[in-house]
Simulated assay, not measured.
Amino acid sequence: MMTSNDPLHGKTLEMILTYLVEHFGWEDLGRIININCFTNNPSIKSSLTFLRKTPWARKKVEELYLSTL
């Protein structure tokens, strides 16, 4: 059986975002990654919608997640 070396393997975007919000809170998350969905009336649902459509923002979220591990 192959195991993936990818630390994001098996992690959904929702799991990653939820972890980051619990770790930083919305306010700090919005300061670290300055995107509207984190700074203006943030929610997991609206942020997921934006991140799924916006590859550069999703990449920043994934990179931040990896840096906290």
Rank of each mutant, 00 (worst) to 15 (best):
P42L: 04
M1E: 15
F50T: 15
R58I: 02
I16C: 02
T54F: 08
D28F: 02
K59L: 11
I16M: 09
L20Y: 01
L17F: 02
F24Y: 14
N5E: 12
Y19D: 09
K59S: 13
K45Q: 14
G25D: 10
S47E: 07
R52M: 07
E62S: 03
N34D: 12
K11A: 01
S46D: 13
V21F: 08
H23V: 06
L66C: 02
C37T: 15
N34Y: 00
S4H: 09
Y19F: 15
I16F: 01
A57W: 06
E14H: 00
G30Q: 09
T54R: 11
L8Y: 05
D6H: 01
S46Q: 13
K59M: 05
N34S: 13
T68H: 01
N40R: 13
R58G: 03
S43H: 05
T54E: 10
I33T: 09
D6F: 01
S4D: 15
T49Y: 08
L13K: 12
R58T: 04
W56I: 15
M15I: 06
E22M: 09
L17N: 03
T39A: 14
E63R: 13
E27D: 12
I35F: 08
W26M: 08
E62H: 09
I33G: 05
L51M: 10
T3G: 01
I33Y: 03
N40F: 08
L51P: 04
C37G: 06
G10M: 03
K11N: 07
W56Q: 14
V21N: 09
H9N: 10
L64I: 10
T49N: 13
P7Q: 01
L17M: 05
L29P: 09
T54D: 14
T54Y: 11
M15E: 15
I32E: 00
C37N: 08
M2H: 13
L13N: 15
N40D: 11
W56A: 15
S4P: 03
G25W: 04
H23F: 12
L20H: 04
I32Y: 00
S46V: 05
W56M: 10
S47T: 14
V61D: 02
L48I: 12
M1Y: 15
D28I: 06
S43M: 06
E27G: 02
N34H: 06
E63T: 12
L17T: 03
T18S: 14
E63Q: 11
N41H: 12
M2E: 14
N34R: 10
N36R: 14
L48T: 05
A57M: 10
L64W: 04
K53T: 13
L20C: 08
E22A: 14
R52L: 02
F38I: 08
I32C: 00
D6Y: 00
F50Q: 11
I35G: 03
L29R: 10
L8G: 02
T12C: 01
D28R: 14
M1I: 15
H23Q: 06
G30W: 06
E27C: 00
L66Y: 03
T12S: 15
W26F: 06
T54G: 04
V21H: 08
E27L: 04
L13E: 14
T39Y: 05
T3L: 14
K45L: 11
F24C: 08
T3F: 09
L66E: 03
Y65P: 01
I32S: 01
I44A: 08
N34P: 13
D28A: 14
